[in-house]
Computed example of a mutant assay.
Amino acid sequence: MATAAIVRMSRLLKVRSISFPTKCRLYNFFEVFILLYGCHTWTLHVDTERRILACEHKYLQ
């Protein structure tokens, strides 16, 4: 779901008139919220943490 959301937002994030801090706020609000939805019920394993970090790095490129 997070990947689909970042694809939909990619056009918005490429607009040059939007400042970088605003883009970061949009990313944090939408993508992190979608990616971590329901995380309070997860059992966090090393593998899960690594996958979350990999997604975040992929989206921030």
Rank of each mutant, 00 (worst) to 15 (best):
T3D: 15
A4W: 03
A4V: 10
A4H: 08
A5I: 08
A5H: 05
A5E: 08
A5G: 09
I6G: 01
V7N: 12
V7D: 09
R8E: 00
R8N: 10
M9L: 15
R11A: 11
L12K: 06
L12W: 06
L12V: 14
L12Q: 12
L13T: 04
L13M: 15
L13N: 04
L13P: 01
K14P: 02
V15S: 02
V15L: 14
R16D: 13
R16Y: 07
R16H: 11
R16E: 15
S17P: 03
S17D: 13
I18D: 01
I18S: 01
I18F: 06
S19W: 07
S19D: 10
S19Q: 14
F20T: 12
F20Y: 14
F20R: 12
P21E: 04
T22P: 00
T22A: 11
K23T: 03
K23L: 02
K23A: 05
K23I: 05
K23N: 04
C24N: 06
C24R: 14
R25V: 05
R25E: 09
R25G: 03
R25L: 09
L26D: 01
L26F: 08
L26E: 02
Y27A: 05
Y27Q: 00
Y27E: 00
N28Q: 12
N28A: 11
N28V: 03
N28E: 06
F29G: 02
F29A: 10
F29M: 11
F30Y: 08
F30M: 02
E31G: 02
E31S: 00
E31Q: 07
E31A: 07
V32E: 02
F33T: 13
I34N: 03
I34E: 01
L36H: 02
L36V: 00
L36R: 02
Y37A: 03
G38W: 05
G38L: 05
G38Y: 03
G38K: 03
C39T: 06
C39M: 08
C39V: 11
C39N: 08
C39I: 11
H40L: 08
H40I: 07
H40T: 14
T41M: 06
T41E: 11
T41D: 05
T41F: 11
W42V: 06
W42C: 04
T43W: 08
L44V: 13
L44C: 10
H45S: 15
V46D: 10
V46K: 15
T48S: 10
T48A: 13
E49D: 08
E49F: 12
E49V: 13
R50C: 06
R50S: 12
R51C: 10
R51E: 12
R51K: 13
R51T: 08
